[in-house]
């Protein structure tokens, strides 16, 4: 961590000049490496990148996400996955290979407004991303409360090796499901724990750029529970 140089940047900021590799969220102009988004720039080894603090969710294969059913045709559901593209969940994925559009009614399984835990099965920007719920722990979410955070702040909410999320879950007794797309579902037996967990998540979203955030969250949760 110490040998990585970090800096707050906005689009257009020249991060450095010289023989570096331009990685994510930067572009090369002559020998200048320029940030293309608001975030924190990192120079590591011979590469330069910016960790974004704003922006849309771009689906990547195998991402775990949470989607909201927007509508359906006779063959598939269309999902709001907080991205520039709508997620497509094919009916076969839910009904199996024997799916018959004449017999099977899609709304009998999922209807508009339902929340689902899902994975991105395929995504290449030339077509709407394909979503699947055919796996363990995937499918309709039956309880909890949805919070939307910026997808760019999801890594912060998870924390290093899940440290942040573990901190919040153990202090509030809430169960938190985080979609890579910034949709987060919180559920808890106790209304108080639910409120505290949601408060903590909002704090992570607002202060994602602040160092020692885990300690701050611990403090907030600790002082609240006493």
């Amino acid at each position: 961590m110490d040998d990585i140089k970090r800096k707050y940047v906005i689009p257009g900021d020249v991060i450095t000049t010289g023989p570096y590799r331009a990685e994510e969220n930067v572009h090369l102009h002559g020998d200048k490496i320029i940030a293309t988004t608001v975030g924190i720039s990192e120079i590591f080894d011979s590469g330069v990148r910016v960790i974004p603090l704003a922006g849309m969710y771009i689906p990547r294969i195998d991402d775990f996400i949470i989607g909201i059913v927007k509508s359906h045709t006779s063959l598939s559901w269309e999902l709001n996955i907080n991205s520039c593209y709508a997620g497509i969940l094919p009916a076969q994925d839910v009904f199996g290979r024997d799916f018959n559009p004449k017999v099977d009614d899609l709304t009998s399984r999922l209807k508009t407004g339902d929340l689902i835990a899902a994975r991105v099965a395929n995504s290449d920007r030339s077509r709407d991303p394909l979503i699947t719920i055919a796996d363990r722990d995937l499918g309709k979410i039956e309880e909890g409360e949805l919070i939307k955070i910026s997808p760019s702040k999801v890594p912060r909410l998870i924390g290093k090796r899940g440290s942040m999320i573990q901190t919040i879950e153990s202090a509030t007794k809430a169960i938190i499901t985080i979609g890579q797309n910034g949709f987060v579902v919180v559920s808890s037996e106790e209304p108080e724990g639910l409120l505290k967990a949601m408060e903590a998540i909002k704090m992570v979203e607002e202060q994602a750029h602040v160092p020692n955030l885990t300690e701050r969250i611990q403090q907030m949760l600790g002082s609240n529970s006493e």
């Binding site: 508009t112 407004g113 929340l115 309880e143 409360e145 949805l146 579902v185």
Partner: peptide, 10 residues
């Protein structure tokens, strides 16, 4: 506005 079902129930 599409309200998610959990919110509606709540």
């Amino acid at each position: 506005t599409i309200l998610d079902d959990l919110k509606k129930k709540k």
